[in-house]
């Protein structure tokens, strides 16, 4: 029986790390490859997580891979190619790095939508227009959200579906996590500034997860957050740097204009641009949203269209932290199962 026990995992976000711990624990030789200097992925950017305001750092600490003789971690390894030769996969970055493995697990996560592309919302031009990612940064710093001039905001508007469900942005799918992020951040704004009015502008509220609706209730009951059903058509800046929003209040059936001190754009999750590179020289495929395509959306979500390559976490589709970790463990299980079945055949 030949020993086929080498696994390469691309991406050391929470998905990659969780799978690495499980598989190294089972005795496989795991190489975890991360393009950034440090592991953790997007969770490094978040302050408190929905739906329970627990700290993102706490999840990072829990998931953090520990030293293990079966595990080697290589950072600053931006993998751009996967080829299969003589029954083995060869992974390489744009320099001289080469990693060989019997099976590969993709855990490359997602990119954030670039809000400057929605020109009509003025991100990058109007200084009081920020994104949900910028808000996390402020919250994490322990400071309070203020206008550019350092003033307390009297009114904050939170805009849903920025770069998601929008043919104009090229993303027609729902990013799933931004509605609940919008509700969470609305609460956080009013916790910072109890007198501040917060308005969420949505097309549909999609609070799909367990305990998400109770956060919605909390926002209404205890924080007087108001929800307006209407898509913003544009934001303009007044001379005093205050903002003016235009939308239709569709439930009233009338156009609406509103002044706000700060606008938060809930940016969506996009597939990594590099996914296309990783699909070259093999039979990996992308789905219509440019995320990695599963062999079957029901029973083989972690299995790619290239035999021997598996997938975990938000490189499959937008996912929350708990979904990502579940996806990751399920991928690890399938990798283990795949090794076992090969050995039985041999």
């Amino acid at each position: 029986m030949t020993e086929k026990r080498n696994i390469a995992i691309i991406g050391a976000g929470i998905a990659g790390q969780e799978a690495a711990s499980v598989l190294a624990g089972l005795g496989y030789k795991v190489t975890l490859l991360e393009k950034q200097e440090r592991m953790g992925g997007m969770l490094n950017k978040w302050s408190k997580l929905f739906p329970d305001f627990s700290s993102s750092q706490q999840i990072l600490d829990t998931v953090q891979v520990s030293a293990n003789k079966n595990l080697s971690v290589i950072c600053n390894a931006d993998i751009s190619s996967i080829t299969k030769e003589n029954g083995r996969f060869e992974l390489s970055d744009n320099s001289s790095l080469k990693v060989y493995a019997d099976l590969v697990l993709l855990a490359t996560g997602y990119n954030l939508f670039d809000a400057t592309l929605k020109e009509e919302y003025g991100y990058g031009v109007f200084e009081n227009v920020i994104t949900s990612v910028d808000f996390e940064k402020v919250h994490k710093s322990g400071k309070k959200l203020t206008t550019l001039l350092g003033k307390e905001p009297r009114r904050v508007a939170i805009i849903h579906c920025v770069g998601s469900r929008d043919a104009k942005s090229g993303n027609t799918y729902c990013s799933k996590v931004c509605c609940i992020t919008g509700v969470k951040q609305a609460i956080e704004v009013t916790r910072m500034w109890p007198d501040c009015e917060v308005f969420n502008f949505y097309m549909d509220l999609r609070l799909y997860g367990s305990k998400y609706d109770s956060l919605y209730l909390e926002a209404q009951k205890h924080h007087k957050v108001q929800f307006i059903r209407g898509r913003l058509s544009e934001i303009s800046e007044r001379q005093d740097k205050g903002l003016q929003l235009k939308a239709e209040d569709t439930l009233q059936g009338r156009p609406l204009r509103m002044n706000a001190d700060i606008v938060i754009l809930l940016v969506g999750m996009e597939a990594c641009e590099q996914n296309a590179d990783l699909c070259r020289n093999n039979t990996l495929d992308l789905d219509e949203n440019r995320f990695f395509k599963s062999k079957n959306i029901h029973y083989a979500r972690n299995i790619s269209t290239q035999p021997g390559i598996f997938m975990a976490g938000s490189c499959i589709c937008p996912m929350s932290v708990n979904e990502t970790l579940e996806s990751s463990r399920s991928a690890a299980f399938l990798v283990d199962k795949s090794f076992r079945s090969v050995q039985v055949e041999e």
Binding site: M203, D204, R229, G230, R231, L232, S233, E234, K246, A247, E248, D249, T250, G253, R254, P255, L256
Partner: peptide
């Protein structure tokens, strides 16, 4: 999906009751 983006920006809708 009746999001109202069109009505919000509509030239006629900002001057009249047109929706």
């Amino acid at each position: 999906i009746s999001c109202g983006g069109c009505t919000a920006t509509c030239s006629a809708g900002n001057l009249t009751s047109f929706n």
